[in-house]
């Protein structure tokens, strides 16, 4: 059994190498942008030349390679999902998406994935040969010494999409989607000066500050790039702390994938308490400073 791993992110490839480690041999196809070829713990590394921003082109390049492998694993990123589906269709290889475990049982693949909108996990024996793998489920496998490997450059014809220019992201902009801990404030903080309390908590925890729509795009106490929700960011940190946020559905859809949710709100019937793991009913101005003190000591 031999497999090919693909992603446009070197980190995700390393995760997937760990994911398959000990289960079967894996080669790597990489289409990301780097100045030098990244180091992978794999015997064969295909580098898709001049990363062409266009899933269709990447898929075509991969289709020339993937025929020699039993299984094809793709990191479940936006590009990856598209590439996997295209390869599956064109090569007539059945596909299973967003898997979080993989094993071989009597020569057949056994995978698990979320089911019922995330409420259960389904295990499944499948005849699929293409898989998208959820990101962030394994640590990265990094070879500690130079790894003997064959590097093969794959040249692709540029498809319909070309890189015309690059613009730096605005300075000071945050990427909430990558934050591990988020302290989010709602209108419950009452006044702009109240942000200080939240900032203290955030700095004690090494967290990013975020807010509900009223706080960000209506009152402009925080920048709009910090808004969480339907018309803001979708975040999934390990810990999400909601201060004075009522928890309307438009806010909830932006943070419900957070691992642990802690809510502080004065109103015990606030809907946020249906969405949290830990809820504190009370005045945030009384509770948060004590929390900060406790964390600092």
């Amino acid at each position: 059994m031999k497999s090919l791993i693909f992603s446009e992110s070197a980190e995700i490839i390393k995760e997937m190498l760990n994911f398959l480690n000990g289960k079967m041999e894996a080669d790597v196809a990489f289409a990301g942008e780097t100045s030098e070829a990244p180091l992978f713990a794999a015997k064969k590394v295909f580098i898709i030349d001049s990363y062409p921003y266009d899933p269709q082109t990447v898929a075509l390049a991969l289709e020339g390679i993937v025929g020699g492998y039993d299984y094809f694993f793709v990191g479940a990123t936006t590009v990856g999902r598209e590439v996997a589906a295209m390869v599956s269709q064109d090569m007539n290889m059945p596909m299973e998406s967003e898997i979080m475990s993989f094993g071989l049982e009597n020569g057949q693949a056994k995978v698990s994935r979320f089911y019922y909108g995330g409420k259960t996990v389904m295990e499944k024996i499948t005849s699929a040969r293409v898989f998208t793998v959820m990101a962030g489920i394994s640590d990265q496998l990094v070879p500690d010494k130079p790894y003997e490997q064959e590097v093969i450059m794959v040249h692709v014809q540029s498809g319909g999409i070309n890189l015309i220019s690059r613009e730096e992201k605005q300075k000071g902009s945050v990427d909430l989607t990558k934050a591990d801990i988020i302290v989010a404030v709602g209108r419950g903080i009452g006044k702009k000066e109240g942000l200080e309390v939240a900032e203290q908590l955030a700095s004690a925890l090494g967290a990013e500050l975020a807010g509900s729509r009223p706080v960000c795009s209506d009152l402009h106490w925080l920048g709009e790039e910090r808004q969480v929700g339907l018309s803001g960011k979708r975040v999934k940190p390990k810990v999400y702390i909601a201060l004075g946020i009522s928890g309307q559905i438009q806010h909830i859809v932006g943070m419900r994938d957070s691992k642990t949710v802690i809510a502080i709100n004065r109103d015990k019937s606030a809907p946020i308490f249906n969405e949290c793991d830990y809820g504190l009913v009370g005045d945030l101005y009384a509770i948060v400073p004590k929390l900060v003190q406790a964390i600092r000591s």
């Binding site: 909108g117 409420k119 559905i249 859809v253 419900r256």
Partner: peptide
């Protein structure tokens, strides 16, 4: 396509 509703909550 996946969730069965437009709000993005589990349909379960």
């Amino acid at each position: 396509m996946q969730g069965g509703n437009s709000i993005g909550m589990p349909n379960y």
